[in-house]
């Protein structure tokens, strides 16, 4: 990246104090060489950091530009970015407005959807870890249940909706159930793998100490399986976000999924594009959040 190199001149080669440089050379050529090396490393690090932030900005800009050009070339189709900015001004710049009913800013729609994910995914996490620990320890249970789980886990979220509506008869619990049933499988399966892979050494320690099952669960099993559990949770939270947006489209009311459907019915494409960005950003943040918590909680578990 030549433009960055120009920004940060190499202090060793372009020093404005020849006397100082000369003195240093005389005194200790090794120190000068080391300094050069340090400066070069610093420059590399700085360039790398700039690239990390600059490159995504460049790709986004390029993407928007291409979109703008194509949309203008074929008018009447997808609105161009400039058009979105113009048409959905309020939606973009004021996510907090609330005029009652479903006429709310995107923040409130997202919060409603998130609270559903919070409940559904929270229940799935608790039930999934317990069930995973169970089939991870009891081999007969694993043999009996694993084939069923492997089939259920491939059922798409929306396919669960009719069944849950028929069984639960109301929209809200049905939405929660869809999230629950979609996100629980990766949690169960990963937890079971983690539990089955607890090193024999830890099991021996537990045996010698004669830990009883509850102590074993909290002191050994949970911490040892934490990295696997969080892999499952991370996949699960992503799937529950997919599930909620889809199921809200059918269920109606407040929520980002229904918002998108509603705007589609009134042909407001710009609003949908803004909502899509919210969905993407929130999904991204959810994923990172779970990953970060996982990293914090499982610090040390992999260290040997």
């Amino acid at each position: 990246m030549p433009f960055e190199v120009q920004k940060m001149p190499d202090p060793a080669s372009t020093s404005t104090h020849p006397t100082a440089a000369a003195r240093a050379t005389i005194r200790d050529p090794i120190a000068v060489a080391q300094q050069k090396q340090i400066n070069a490393a610093k420059l590399r690090k700085f360039a790398d950091k700039v690239a990390t932030w600059l490159m995504p900005a460049l790709t986004i800009a390029a993407f928007l530009l291409i979109w703008e050009v194509i949309s203008n070339a074929f008018p009447g189709g997808l609105p161009a970015p400039s058009m979105v900015l113009l048409e959905s001004q309020e939606l973009i710049f004021n996510p907090f407005y609330d005029r009652g009913g479903v006429d709310k800013g995107l923040f409130w729609h997202v919060m409603t959807s998130l609270s559903r994910v919070g409940i559904g995914f929270g229940l799935a996490a608790i039930a999934g870890v317990l069930l995973g620990a169970f089939i991870g320890t009891v081999d007969l249970a694993r043999k009996g249940l694993d084939p069923i789980f492997q089939v259920f886990r491939t059922v798409p979220p929306l396919a669960w909706l009719p069944i849950s509506l028929a069984a639960l008869r109301e929209a809200e619990p049905s939405a929660l159930f869809v999230i629950f049933i979609t996100s629980i499988w990766p949690i169960v399966i990963n937890t079971a793998v983690g539990v089955r892979n607890i090193p024999q050494d830890y099991l021996n320690v537990a045996k010698v100490l004669r830990l009883h099952p509850v102590e074993f669960f909290f002191q050994i099993m949970l911490p040892a399986a934490t990295p696997h559990i969080f892999t499952g949770l991370r996949i699960g939270v992503g799937m529950s976000w997919l599930a909620i947006v889809a199921s809200e489209m059918l269920l109606g009311g407040v929520g980002i999924g229904f918002f998108i459907w509603d705007q589609y019915n009134s042909s407001r494409m710009s609003d949908i594009i803004v909502a899509l960005m919210w969905v993407g950003m929130v999904g991204f943040i959810l994923d990172r959040l779970v990953a970060m918590i996982g990293q914090y909680v499982s610090r040390g578990t992999t260290a040997d």
């Binding site: 050494d201 021996n204 045996k207 010698v208 578990t301």
Partner: peptide, 19 residues
């Protein structure tokens, strides 16, 4: 008949719980 603390073991690979 089974393991127990009155016969404590120091394992070759230390077996400390890393967390």
């Amino acid at each position: 008949t089974g393991p127990g603390p009155e016969r404590a073991v120091v394992f070759q690979n230390h077996s400390l719980l890393p967390w």
